[in-house]
Design a protein around this nucleic acid. Structure first.
Length: 536
DNA sequence: ATAGGGTTAG
């Protein structure tokens, strides 16, 4: 313990407490206070609780809670700090326990208590709880307050009670820009573009955040032109505005435009790009296969000392592996100081698609060894790695343990990997067993996979029966018919082909033409697959 | 001594 600051007077320990950088330092301070009897002192304890406000992880906050419970005379400040810390944690519901405890005690809640308790309700969409607290506030005798009411607007709006939110907003004795944004942000969160636009046009005041909400609202809906219009129109842009536009283009698949806006951003020198910017830019590079621009970004990141966090490491690994440089992907991965589950996932996926199944499995073991919890994506990545290399035993083992050991229940994608692998290796019985374990309405992907394998192995009879099952499962869809007719065609059974086609017409099923595009010398060529559909 | 909306990411 770094006790150099601790002596018999209370001040140094309070300074130590204020400067604590970890929960264990707080616990050291607490231990010291216990010995000296200082821990029951309201002011000293509030310094311990302040740490939880600044670092609201559930563990830290519940520790602060236990400290608060042992104070002789809690005051309104210590109560509010605890409610606030819970409201900002990932377990905001517990803020209401703390609020209830306050109501039962001798200290009356003030406008801060209500604001924090309501903020907690907004966080977990607790509209019923919010309503009760609203009623409580009205009966409390406290004056109407713009902070309390703004939070209330947000509670109702985020819970989808838009009319009530609007009513509270309209009846507020004084509104500010946050009042409007409280409702606007909820429309944006729910993807209600029209409602957001209408409100935005009606707003008495707007700030840069209001504009950013609109840009991101359009971008999230894939309406990049509208987003751009809004972006061009806004009176003041900040870093978030630029990032919203770059990511909007990238997510909409407009990768060239994403890079263009990024270049504009650099040229205008208005804002320095940050990790958010680079993640979107790298994603654009990855999807364009543009290694040179991706490299440029990496150099920029290094030169400007931008911190490579889990997100950025993931984006870099992804960019390098999608651009064919798995060696550089591994290099970035190895040198990354921060990794999260997605970083591991993108490394495993990268190795897998490069055919390096064993390396992918090695990274998976490392991941588990280092204490990261694999998720559903991880298992898709490792199972497809097994698939690429034909590692049946490993795949079986992973598939069995993913639920029991790692707590990730297999979904249809995982079944898909297994059925693919089993089919490829000719293990038809085992594959069928798996297919029969999933609910019928999800089984068609698996049936198609297995059907393909049957064809490759010349198992025409089984293929036929699978195609029939596919047909029964979804008579309105093309895949069963197409598979069936291809099957007959490849065996020269033309009468049966005609019969399938007739059935298809009778059921009014039409095969949608496949479409693909390619750019050659700046001219886009479009190809349509299908019969007589090009002139339709 | 403590406020509210907080927009951007693989």
């Amino acid at each position: 313990m770094t006790t150099s600051c601790c002596s018999s007077t209370p001040l140094p320990i309070l300074t130590f407490t204020e400067r604590a950088k970890s929960l264990s330092e707080i616990q050291q301070a607490h231990a010291f206070m216990l010995k000296t009897g200082l821990s029951r002192d309201t002011f000293s304890a509030s310094k311990l609780i302040a740490y939880a406000v600044a670092n609201p992880e559930p563990k830290t906050v519940s520790y602060a809670h236990s400290i608060l419970n042992r104070i002789d005379t809690p005051n309104v400040f210590t109560h509010n700090s605890l409610i606030r810390a819970y409201a900002n944690s990932s377990t905001p519901e517990i803020a209401l326990t703390a609020f209830r405890e306050m109501l039962l005690g001798p200290v009356a809640p003030d406008k801060y208590s209500f604001t924090f308790a309501l903020k907690a309700c907004a966080a977990f969409r607790g509209v019923e709880e919010g309503r009760q607290i609203h009623g409580h506030f009205l009966k409390s005798g406290l004056d109407s307050d713009v902070f309390v009411e703004n939070t209330l607007v947000n509670v109702y709006a985020r819970s989808g009670w838009f009319e009530v939110a609007r009513k509270v907003l309209d009846e507020m004795p004084e509104r500010d820009v946050v009042s409007w944004n409280s409702l606007l942000s909820a429309f944006v969160e729910k993807g209600l573009v029209e409602e957001a636009r209408e409100l935005f046009d009606e707003m008495e005041e707007r700030n840069v955040e209001s504009w950013n909400f609109m840009v991101s609202c359009y971008a999230a809906a894939g309406l990049v032109e509208e987003a751009r219009e809004c972006f061009d129109e806004m009176p003041v842009k900040d870093l978030v505005s630029w990032n919203a536009m770059v990511s909007g283009y990238a997510r909409a698949g407009c990768y060239g435009e994403a890079l263009e806006v990024f270049n504009e951003m650099l040229k205008s020198c208005a804002e320095e790009p940050d990790g958010f910017t680079f993640v979107s830019v790298l994603s654009a590079c990855a999807n364009l296969g543009s290694l040179s621009q991706g490299e440029w970004v990496r150099v920029y990141i290094d030169k400007h000392g931008v911190e490579i966090d889990g997100f950025l490491a993931t984006a870099l690994v992804d960019m390098y592996s999608k651009c064919g440089r798995i060696d550089k992907a591994v290099e970035v991965f190895r040198s990354a100081s921060k990794k999260d589950v997605s970083t591991w996932n993108s490394m495993i996926t990268g190795l897998s698609v490069h055919g390096l199944g064993n390396d992918a499995l090695g990274i998976f073991s490392e991941m588990v060894y280092e204490g990261f919890k694999p998720n559903s994506v991880t298992f898709i990545a490792v199972l497809s790695a097994c698939n690429h290399v034909g590692l049946l035993d490993q795949a079986r083992k992973l598939f069995e343990t993913m639920g029991s050991v790692y707590g990730v229940e297999p979904s249809i994608e995982h079944y898909g990997c297994m059925v693919d692998l089993l089919g490829r290796l000719g293990r038809f019985e085992e594959a069928e067993e798996l297919v029969n374990k999933v609910p019928p309405d999800e089984a068609s992907v698996l049936l198609e996979s297995l059907l393909g394998a049957c064809k490759r192995f010349g198992r025409t009879e089984q293929a036929e029966s699978l195609a029939n099952r596919l047909l029964e499962l979804n008579p309105g869809e093309t895949s069963g018919y197409v598979q069936m007719s291809n099957l007959y065609a490849s065996n020269g059974r033309w009468d049966e082909v005609t019969e399938v086609r007739r059935k298809m017409r009778a059921e009014r099923v039409n095969k949608k033409p496949g479409c693909s595009m390619i750019e050659v010398d700046g001219v886009v060529h479009e190809f349509l697959a299908g019969e007589g559909l090009i002139n339709d």
